[in-house]
């Protein structure tokens, strides 16, 4: 996984709450192998008309938001279905950071697995950023080390779990990390088979 340190890029306001992962990527695309790319599926049914072409109405399709890498949204971004395809669609489209007051938890885990930064800000700060972007601001800088977002009128602090921060900054692969605890896992299994004999399927 590529480490995330600092990103300066075009940011796009999505001034909606409860953006669910069914909207981020509709279910009918999920049989597609990842190698074919998911970027074209991002917000498919919100962005595209019956002919499959973008209508140009969705914020991401405005000319001034070309090359967007940062999304700013309202509370509960990524709620709903556990589909990691939602993160694939965002990342394959070029999004590396979503800024919002809260996130769906499974989405949060999926983001971490793929190096997509979820930056938690207060509702007020999210509204401020959304307002500034809608008023014409284009670029933001997100610095993970200092947990600061700059480019708006005033710098904004964001929150992230310390463990998530470590993994993103280092680009750690979790399977590799886990296999370094092989002995502890073996010891746990040994002790657990005695403590909970009923836990194994018969």
């Amino acid at each position: 996984m590529e480490p995330f340190k600092r990103l300066t890029a075009v940011a796009c306001p999505l001034p909606f709450a409860n953006i669910d992962t069914d909207q981020v990527v509709p279910a009918r695309f999920m049989s597609t192998p990842r190698t074919q790319g998911y970027g074209g599926f991002l917000f498919h049914d919100r962005r595209r008309g019956a002919d499959g072409q973008p209508t140009g109405e969705f914020p991401l399709d405005k000319p001034e938001r070309a090359a967007t890498k940062i999304i700013v949204a309202k509370r509960n971004f990524g709620c709903g279905s556990s589909r990691e395809a939602a993160v694939y669609a965002l990342m394959d489209f070029g999004i590396h950071c979503v800024i919002a007051p809260s996130f769906g938890e499974i989405f949060g885990g999926n983001s971490l697995s793929n190096g997509l930064l979820n930056a938690r800000v207060s509702e007020r700060d999210a509204d401020t950023l959304l307002g500034e972007l809608e008023a014409g601001a284009r670029e933001l800088t997100v610095d993970l080390e200092t947990q600061r977002i700059t480019g708006g009128k005033v710098p904004i602090q964001f929150e992230i779990d310390p463990a998530a921060k470590l993994r993103l900054i280092n680009g750690w692969d979790d399977v590799q990390m886990t296999l370094s605890f092989r002995d502890q896992i073996a010891a746990f299994q040994q002790q657990d088979s005695v403590a909970r004999p009923w836990a194994r399927p018969v």
């Binding site: 885990g109 979790d174 886990t178």
Partner: peptide, 11 residues
């Protein structure tokens, strides 16, 4: 999610 499924399969 899928990466976590892979992690559980592996570990």
């Amino acid at each position: 999610g899928a990466s976590e499924v892979a992690h559980v399969l592996a570990t």
